[in-house]
Amino acid sequence: MMHPLRKQRMQWICLILISTSVATALIAYMLRQNANFFYTPSQIAIGQAPLGVSLRAGGEVVVGSLKRAQQSLAIEFLVSDGLHSVKVTYEGILPDLFSEGQSTVVTGKIDDQNTLHAVQVLAKHDENYTPPEIAEMYENQGI
């Protein structure tokens, strides 16, 4: 017969092992589901980015491309990495630092017209540097 304390301990260890493995599996699954991958406008233009999946894209807002709707807050603009540009639509308030010619990171889904329907638009400027994704994008461009 097992010592009752030992038995109690074994039960706990089993419970903990099971719950940790369930939790780990669930976390791993959810991370995959909710990770937004970053794509450059060029990758989107040549069809490397998946359609209908939430993703992020970034680049410079093309000067003169921002169009507003008459009645609502709907807008559209082009985001470019210097080689290609992608059309982005959004409805809502833009962040304070957003403007044409500045870099932006948008999150949203791409439709079959290769237009990105953004649910979030960021104009995030690191205090000391251009956002790393943008920097890396320029670095890799043309290669």
Partner: peptide, 12 residues
């Protein structure tokens, strides 16, 4: 390069 959004955290 990825980012993890609020839906992941909220789910748990």
């Amino acid at each position: 390069k990825i980012s993890v959004g609020p839906p992941y955290f909220n789910f748990f």
